[in-house]
């Protein structure tokens, strides 16, 4: 099995994927519909929207100083949501990659001596 050309292709794949996600979060998010979404609409229609906690536990986290929902606080309005989207996309990407890196065991084919790793 030859894997020689693989690393370069992987780079291109995940750079394209991450790049388009950043474009969506940074570019398209300003055009998102501001209508209430499914559950929100149901809550409004049936009068239980007021049951949502006014001071939920997440407001006590340090991140609340930086983000008001999907809006980065210290920047001007038009940039707040796109920047929050970009930060969120990068954080999500890194965390998911990290979780994968920690849990998935290394590919034996990528090691120096293929087949040297006995199956557990």
């Amino acid at each position: 099995m030859t894997f020689s050309s693989r690393p370069a292709k992987y780079w291109r794949f995940w750079l394209t994927g991450l790049g388009s996600s950043l474009l969506i979060a940074g570019g398209l998010s300003s055009f998102a519909s501001s209508h209430p979404d499914g559950l929100n609409r149901v809550a409004l229609d049936h009068g239980f929207d007021q049951q949502a906690a006014v001071h939920p536990p997440s407001h006590r986290l340090p991140f609340y100083h930086w983000f008001d929902g999907y809006a980065l606080r210290p920047v001007p309005t038009p940039l707040a949501t796109p920047l929050a989207g970009i930060v969120g996309t990068l954080v999500t990407f890194s965390l998911a990659w990290g979780v994968g890196k920690i849990t998935v065991k290394p590919d034996p084919a990528a090691l120096e001596a293929p087949g040297s790793e006995p199956p557990p």
Partner: peptide, 24 residues
């Protein structure tokens, strides 16, 4: 799972996060 799943995990998470911001 094997190693090669890892980049797709990152990309998939990033895309789903980004796409969830776009209310249609």
């Amino acid at each position: 799972y094997k190693d090669r799943a890892v980049p797709l995990m990152g990309v998939c998470a990033a895309f789903i996060f980004a796409a969830q911001m776009i209310n249609f």
